[in-house]
Simulated assay, not measured.
Amino acid sequence: MNLLASSPTFVLRESGDQGEMDVLNPNQIADDSGIYWIHGLTLLPSGKRILSVFRVDTGAGGALCGVFWHDGANWFSHDEEDALAALKVAGEQITPFDWKLSVPLERDTFH
């Protein structure tokens, strides 16, 4: 995640079944080309923006499979118990959220 945060034009594509990842630097991510980890921002209803890494399924129109948020010091998975407290956000303030990917998808059915 730190690689993506420091180089937001790079993405990771999951490959194989042992957790392998390919590091790529595409201008756009092709439709139905796999699961990618992509740098971006979570946009909260309040207007707050959170540095994020998204796990995206290109075979499902860009559906999010996971979200990782950075609080300025640490990364938290969206489902970690202490993530919202670290971000200083109440549960009712987090949804519905939008997101912006640093590398666009060829097909994004959510935007």
Rank of each mutant, 00 (worst) to 15 (best):
S15K: 14
H70R: 01
L12S: 06
A63H: 13
N2G: 12
H78Q: 11
E106N: 09
L87W: 03
V89N: 00
L87T: 03
A63E: 10
R55W: 10
K100M: 15
K48R: 03
V23W: 11
D17E: 03
D98V: 01
E20A: 00
Q93C: 10
T9V: 14
W69A: 04
H78N: 11
D82E: 15
H39Q: 09
D31Y: 03
V103W: 02
N2T: 12
P26Q: 10
L51C: 04
S33D: 01
L51T: 04
F97C: 00
Q18A: 05
S6N: 08
A60C: 13
S33R: 02
S77C: 08
E92A: 06
L24M: 07
D82H: 15
L87P: 00
L12W: 05
S7G: 11
R55P: 08
R107K: 12
E14K: 13
Q93A: 14
L43F: 02
K88W: 13
G72I: 00
H111C: 15
F10L: 13
W37T: 02
H111A: 14
D32F: 07
F68L: 14
S46V: 01
F76P: 04
A85H: 06
S6Y: 11
S7Y: 11
A83D: 07
S7E: 14
M21D: 11
N25V: 15
Q28L: 09
P45I: 05
K100W: 15
E20L: 04
V103L: 03
K100R: 13
P26C: 07
G62S: 11
P96G: 10
K88R: 10
F76R: 00
S33P: 01
H70S: 03
A60K: 15
G91I: 00
A86M: 09
E106K: 12
A60P: 13
F76W: 02
V53E: 14
G72R: 04
Q28R: 12
I29Q: 04
G34E: 05
W69V: 08
V56E: 03
G19K: 13
P8R: 02
L84Y: 09
A63L: 14
T95K: 01
D57L: 15
G47Y: 09
A60H: 13
L24W: 11
P45H: 06
V53M: 15
Q18L: 07
G47F: 06
H39M: 10
S77V: 05
S33C: 02
S102R: 05
D82N: 13
I50P: 04
W75V: 01
S15I: 11
